[in-house]
Every structure is written in C-alpha cells, then in structure tokens.
Design a protein around this nucleic acid. Sequence first.
DNA 1: ACATTTTGTTAGATGAATCTAACATTGTAG
DNA 2: CTACAATGTTAGATTCATCTAACAAAATGT
Lengths: 219, 219
Amino acid sequence: MISLTEENYLKALFNLANNAGEVNVNELSKQLDIKMPTVTSMMKKLAEKKLVHYESYKPLRLTEKGKKEAALVIRKHRLTEMFLVDKMGFGWEEVHDIAEQVEHVRSAVFFDKLDELLGFPKIDPHGAPIPDKNGKFAWIAYDKLSDCHAGETVKVSAVIHTSSEFLKFLNNREIRLGTKIKIKSVESFDGSMIVSYDNRPADTLTHTVCERLLVEKTK
Amino acid sequence: MISLTEENYLKALFNLANNAGEVNVNELSKQLDIKMPTVTSMMKKLAEKKLVHYESYKPLRLTEKGKKEAALVIRKHRLTEMFLVDKMGFGWEEVHDIAEQVEHVRSAVFFDKLDELLGFPKIDPHGAPIPDKNGKFAWIAYDKLSDCHAGETVKVSAVIHTSSEFLKFLNNREIRLGTKIKIKSVESFDGSMIVSYDNRPADTLTHTVCERLLVEKTK
DNA sequence: ACATTTTGTTAGATGAATCTAACATTGTAG
DNA sequence: CTACAATGTTAGATTCATCTAACAAAATGT
C-alpha cells in the first residue's frame, strides 16, 4: 500500500525527472517544500519498497515499478482535472489544487467512471497526456513555441507550468488549446515573439511565455 | 484547522448521538474501529478545541461548535453522494465508501459547485437531509414503517442504515425512494409485514427491514 | 589546488494517531 | 450488598512524517 505522502513524492519525482530520469534531493525538497533530511529518509523508505533507486550522494531515479505507480497517480490527477473542466464547468486555471486533493481518493470504480463519462480522454485540459490503466503514456512530440521561427503558423497543443497565474494570463490573452498562432517576428536579443491569432491585434509574447507553450506546426 | 481524523470522530459522534445528544466512549470506539484509550485521548484533544464536552466517565457530547463542524462534514458527504448518483450514474448502494473519501477534500469552491450543479438539493440519495452552509439541518419528521399499521398506504421517503448489503436487498425488491407501499397485514409475534407495491405480488418484509424504512403516510 | 558554497546525510527530537497492559470506576445480577 | 462484568482511564510504546543541528561529500571559482 502506498500512502498519500508517498504518492506525492512519486508524482514529484516523475514530474521533475530530466531526460536521464534523474532528480536531485535538493530539487525534490524544494518542489515539495519539505526539508532535505526528510526527503533522504523517505527515499530510503521508497527504496525499501522498490519504488526508487537510491545510493548516497547519487541522483534519485524511479524504478519501473515506481514509474508505474507515479503514472497511476498522475492518471487520477489528470482524469480529475478533465472532469472538473468538461463536466463541472471549472476553468483550466482552477482545477490543479482541487485535483491535488481528489487524486488521493482510493476507489478504482470512481476513476473508471470518470474515465468512461469523459469518453476515455487521451489528454487533460492543459494538453498533457493521461496515462492508461497500466501507467503507459501516449507521448506526443510537440515543439516549444520558443523553438519556432518567424513566418510559421502553429497550433497551441499544451501548456507547461500549469500555475493558476500563468493560465489566467493566457485567459486574458484569449489563448487556449487549439489557438492558431502566426509568428510575425522574433526578437533575437530576448527571444520574445510578435504574434497574431484570432483576428486580434498583433501582440508580444515574452520568451518565458513562449517556452511554456507547446505547439504543433500547421502546414 | 480540523484534521481528517478529527473530522471522522466528529461525524461519528454526530451520527451516534441519542435524543440527549450523548455518546459512550465504547460505542464510538466500536463505530470507528479504534481502541477505547485512543478514543479517550482524542476526546481530550477535541475538548481542548472546544468541539466536545468531556468529563471523565461521563457520556460524550458535541459542543455547538462541534455540531456545526460535524454538520459541515456531513454536508460534504451527502452532497458528494448526491452527485455520484444523480450526475455520475452510480447506484445508491455504491456511493457511501466513495463519499467517505471525497468528503475530506478541502475546497469550498468544489462543494459549492457540486451544490449548484445539483440545484441545491435538500436530501441525499438515501433521503437524509443535507445541512446548509451554516450546518443547519432541515429535519423532516418521518415515521418508521415498523410503526405503521395494516391498511395504511405509505411512501418510502428515506432509509436508515445505508449499508451496501441492505441497499442491494432493496434493489432486489425494487424498493426505492418514492415507492408507495400498501400494508396488507402485520404479524404481531415478530413485527413482519405483508405488503404490496408497484403491482408486484404481495411480499413479506421483516421487522428489521421495516425499522430501517422511513415513510410518509399518504391520504 | 585549495577554500568556499552547495548539496546531501546522520543523529536525535517532536507531534499526531495509534496500540497494549494495567488499573479504576460504574453498572448489574444474584 | 457484594462480586463480577462492562466500561473508561492512565501509562508507556510504536509508527509515520516531519523538523533542527551538526557533519560529510561534491561542485565551483579564483
């Protein structure tokens, strides 16, 4: 049995993992707002349970079992977010905190029902993939808007950093999943972009914003 | 701040209270499946927080503050049950265990939204009243079916003991809220009733069943 | 390359919620 | 009315998740 606390550590480990699947104790400590010694001792416990590979002074890595369990928590989180937006009428900027709570509900039938009512969605309201019941992700290779070039037209497909502040900013600019953005020009010195979309006047998006928007190129 | 554990003690105290509002340590211990010494120490803690009146060897009583907090937990529980049945398609026998988990979600907007989507319901799927946001109950005075007499026709308005087994039994007999039951006769030696409803063949309901059905007399 | 900063670990304490064993009070049945 | 049963409390231990203080290792910068 995996406790609520352990679920939170697994989810954070999964979300923080770099290309090599590695996470530092310090990063994890900051992410969870829990002191490093506590993190170290929890990592030893999760290593006992075969959920994490742990060696002193080495970066942390989830085991295959750990990745699966993390994916199942993320599945519960994202199904909840999708339900809150699609079926309950919440805005995409409101659902993260509620889903953080609901994701710990222990009832397979409950999440199966959410899944069914939603028509077995593959992505959540922020464009992130929803793992299947075996913890498998259907990864889609999007580009960051910041890696695109002037003249291209792209479709917003997902947002990274789903903080309420950032999402409210996007609401104000009327940018949502599916919005088609035409890149007019890119400032080389700060990476900001002048863009237009939806018949709105041309607008500037800072590099920070462009890095957080994942897009698909349209032909 | 009231912890999840404390919420469970308050809810149990509220549900077990007799006419005088009193509960014994032993009953509470059995209800929660927690040993008596643990209950005693939690009662001292809740007394510190002014949620319970506690004196050694005396029955337990919720304070007004304790009653209100208990009612707010019960509100979250019953709104959740209503949503699970009305909006998600669960059977009334499935929702108790799920609601036990969801009731601990800390998000006022979430429960306000449930309330709104349900059209501010006054009763839950088992006919129990849903307290308002101030913890006030709109009590309705129903009769137990077991207190009714031969010849009367009554409408099922609520069920006590919402265990899944009992509710499945009612499902099998096609008894639900609103079912109109005609009492053909009552066996004086064991209190069982011969009844008919919905054009079904006459059927016997044991005293145990009749005690758990709350009804309104129809003219 | 060595001194300093950053990162990570060990040791020991704390608070919440639980337990068992032993003792105390209350209720009840001859 | 007394003895036994039922109920309730005290004392002390345990587990989980957290902390602080002190120490150790690794990374970094001049």
